[in-house]
Computed example of a mutant assay.
Amino acid sequence: MTAPVRVLVCDDQALIRTGFATIIDAQPDLEIVGECGDGRAAVDLARRLDPDVVVMDVRMPVLDGIGATRLLAGAGVPDPVKVLVVTTFNLDEYVYEALRAGASGFLLKDAPPAQLLQGIRTVASGAALLAPEVTRQLVGRFAARIRPAEEIAQTQLAPRELEVLRLIAEGLSNSEIAAALVISQETVKTYVSRILTKLDLRDRVQAVVYAYRRGLVT
Rank of each mutant, 00 (worst) to 15 (best):
residue 155 T to I: 05
residue 113 P to I: 03
residue 137 Q to E: 15
residue 167 L to E: 02
residue 22 T to L: 13
residue 51 P to L: 05
residue 3 A to K: 14
residue 70 R to L: 09
residue 42 A to N: 09
residue 23 I to F: 09
residue 184 S to W: 10
residue 123 V to E: 01
residue 45 L to M: 15
residue 115 Q to G: 01
residue 141 R to N: 07
residue 41 A to F: 08
residue 171 G to E: 07
residue 75 A to H: 11
residue 209 V to K: 01
residue 4 P to T: 12
residue 6 R to S: 11
residue 14 A to Y: 12
residue 187 T to V: 12
residue 140 G to A: 03
residue 148 P to R: 03
residue 66 I to S: 05
residue 66 I to Q: 03
residue 179 A to S: 12
residue 31 E to L: 14
residue 7 V to G: 06
residue 18 T to G: 06
residue 131 A to F: 01
residue 180 A to D: 11
residue 32 I to W: 07
residue 208 V to G: 02
residue 27 Q to N: 09
residue 215 G to S: 06
residue 188 V to E: 02
residue 61 P to V: 07
residue 107 L to C: 07
residue 203 D to N: 15
residue 160 R to G: 01
residue 136 R to E: 11
residue 136 R to M: 13
residue 173 S to N: 05
residue 89 F to E: 12
residue 65 G to E: 04
residue 88 T to I: 14
residue 14 A to M: 14
residue 169 A to Q: 00
residue 44 D to V: 15
residue 126 G to E: 08
residue 145 R to I: 07
residue 99 L to M: 15
residue 166 R to A: 13
residue 212 Y to V: 01
residue 175 S to P: 00
residue 32 I to N: 04
residue 114 A to E: 14
residue 151 E to T: 13
residue 65 G to Q: 02
residue 70 R to P: 01
residue 175 S to T: 14
residue 154 Q to W: 08
residue 38 D to R: 06
residue 97 E to A: 11
residue 81 V to G: 00
residue 59 R to P: 04
residue 184 S to Y: 11
residue 202 R to L: 14
residue 65 G to N: 04
residue 203 D to L: 08
residue 193 S to Q: 13
residue 113 P to L: 11
residue 169 A to R: 00
residue 83 V to P: 00
residue 180 A to C: 06
residue 86 V to I: 14
residue 215 G to R: 04
residue 181 L to A: 06
residue 7 V to C: 09
residue 156 Q to L: 14
residue 202 R to P: 05
residue 191 Y to A: 05
residue 46 A to H: 04
residue 183 I to E: 05
residue 177 I to L: 07
